[in-house]
Amino acid sequence: MNFWIVQALNGLQLSMLLFLLSIGLTVIFGLMHFVNLAHGALYALGAYVGVSAFALTGMYWGAFLLAPIAVALAGVVLYLGLIRRMRKAGPMNQVLVTFGLIFVLLDITRIIWGDLALSIPEPQLFTGRSEVLGVAYPTYRLFIIGLGLTVMAGLWLLLSRTQIGAMIRAGVDNDQMAACLGINVERLFFIVFCIGCALAGLAGAVAAPVLSVTPSMGTQLLIPVLIVVVIGGLGSLKGAIAGSLLVGFIQTFGAVLAPQLASVAIYALLAAVLIFRPAGLFPAKA
C-alpha cells in the first residue's frame, strides 16, 4: 500500500511540473493560435537563471524569485523583437521561427553557463523527508506538489473571477468578437505571454534542485508538455490540469508496471485522444 502511495505522489509531483509548463503554452496557443515551441527553452533559461541567482544570493529563494522575473523579461524581449512580427505570418512560419529560437536559446545558455550539468541544493526549509499518509516522502517534492496546486487555484480564480480572466476567456472563445467589444486582444496576449513565460521560468527554478540543469533540459520536457496541451485541449485551464495529471500518472505508473512500455505509453494515449477526441478532452471552444 505504501508503495502505491509513494508512486501516486511521484505521479502528482511530475504532473505539477508539467502543469506549470503547459498552462502557459496552452493559453498562448488558445488565445492567439500561436505555437511557441521555444517554451521549453524558456524553462531551461529559468533553471539557469536560478543557478546564477543562487550563486549570487546564496539562497534558494533568490532563484525562486529571480528566475520567473528574468524569464518574463526575456519574454518581453522575444515578444517585442520577434513574436509580434510573426503574429500574422501563419502557423508554419511561427513554428519555424520558434523552432529556430530553441537552438538560439540553447546556444546562448551554453555560451553563458557552459556544457557541464549544474545544480542547486534544495532550500533548507524543505530538505529531508516528511510523513504524509503514512509514508516518508521527500519534502521538496511535496513543496512542488503544493506549489502546483497553489498556481492552479490562483489561475482558476484569475480566469473565472476577475475581469481580465473574463477578457482572456472571451479572447480564447472568439478573438474577433472580443476585439469588437472593445477588448484590446493584442495587449491581452502580451500579458498572457509574459505570465506564461514567468511560469516557465518558475518551473525551471523549481525543477533545478531535483533535476540537473543542462542545456537540453528544455527540449527533453517540450514533447511531454506538447502532449499535455494536445490531450487537454487547446487554451483551457481544465484541459491543462487534466492533461498534466494524465501524462504525469501514465508516465509514472507506466514506469512501474511496464517499464518496457514506459516511453511509448504517453504516445499511445496521445494517439487515442486524437482519434476519439480530436479537439482534446476539454477544449476551450465548444
Binding site: 508503495f3 509513494v6 505521479g11 509531483q13 511530475l14 509514472t252 517499464p259
Partner: peptide, 18 residues
C-alpha cells in the same frame, strides 16, 4: 532490473521506489 528510457527519464522516483 529496470532499464529507463534513455534521454527521456528525468524523474527516477518511480524506479527508485520500485
Amino acid at each position: 532490473q529496470d532499464y529507463t528510457p534513455f534521454g527521456q527519464t528525468q524523474d527516477f522516483g518511480p524506479y527508485l521506489t520500485t
